[in-house]
Design a protein around this nucleic acid. Structure first.
Length: 238
DNA sequence: CGTATTTGACCGGCGC
DNA sequence: GCGCCGGTCAAATACG
């Protein structure tokens, strides 16, 4: 798996000013993929990539050919950009550094709703696939978006085992793609975390997984040694 | 028989 | 205002 690190370096993913040891990523990544970093982390570092593949992914999905994995916080639009032809890993990161990334925190909510007003965010100005219906509204005005987190993985399997239980609630064929997008929701009640899975249009071997929201619980996977999960990491932010 | 998935309907945002 | 589109619902179906 160390090859992943190398791959990302080659893609220029680990540039930037962050003094983070390249061998361990930007923060202690838990053993599950659905976990999302605290917002503060994102805001201060504006995302990026991890040089390690979560153990559960590497071990629990033996059939997946994990040769290339990127992590990011991303908007739907960004993800679409990733999907667009010619967009490679390096561009993925640059997108994450762009202002569009703010959307993940909801800061952009207003400029999104008032599309025209948000000018600077609208470089590419095509629709943002807002997960419309269930966006939370504060005081009936502000729409707050759950933090999103997406990554691209080369894998034979669509749904990567990340330690959580998911129930599929929808599937949609999106325009200009041949592969359907699947929608999943965390089965834990009171947990509203969602994820969606699709394959890259021009490279069906690549899987794009996007998580939305943060789990308010530990992975409910049947891993009997839950002890490996540091409690200070998982129960609040993750 | 309880639970998960499938799949078309439906909904709301957005572009025109 | 209408139609397209992505996201979700939910009844029917499959699955164990």
């Amino acid at each position: 798996m160390s090859t992943t690190s190398q791959t990302m370096l080659n893609h220029g993913l680990l540039e930037d000013q962050d003094p983070v040891p390249p061998h361990m990523g930007f923060f202690p990544f838990p053993s599950n993929l659905t976990s999302l970093p605290p917002l503060g982390f994102h805001q201060s570092r504006s995302l990026k990539a991890f040089s390690t593949i979560p153990p559960s992914l590497a071990s629990d999905a033996p059939s997946s050919n994990l040769s290339e994995t990127f992590f990011s916080s991303a908007t739907t639009k960004q993800r679409e950009d990733i999907t667009s032809p010619g967009c490679r890993g390096s561009q993925l990161l640059s997108l994450n550094r762009s202002s569009a990334n703010l959307w993940a925190w909801g800061d952009v909510g207003e400029s999104l709703t008032g599309k025209r007003g948000g000018g600077d965010l609208d470089h590419h100005h095509h629709h943002l696939g807002v997960s419309s219906m269930k966006m939370k509204k504060i005081k009936g005005r502000r729409k707050v978006r759950e933090p999103r987190f997406c990554f691209k993985t080369m894998s034979d399997v669509d749904v990567l085992d990340d330690g959580y239980k998911w129930r599929k609630y929808g599937q949609k064929v999106v325009k200009n793609t041949q592969h359907p997008r699947s929608y999943y929701r965390c089965t834990q009640d009171n947990c509203r975390v969602k994820k969606r899975v699709e394959r890259l249009a021009e490279d069906p071997r690549m899987v794009i997984t996007t998580y939305e929201g943060r789990h308010a619980h530990s992975p409910s996977h049947d891993m009997e040694d839950q002890s490996q999960t540091p409690s200070h990491l998982n129960n609040f932010f993750w």
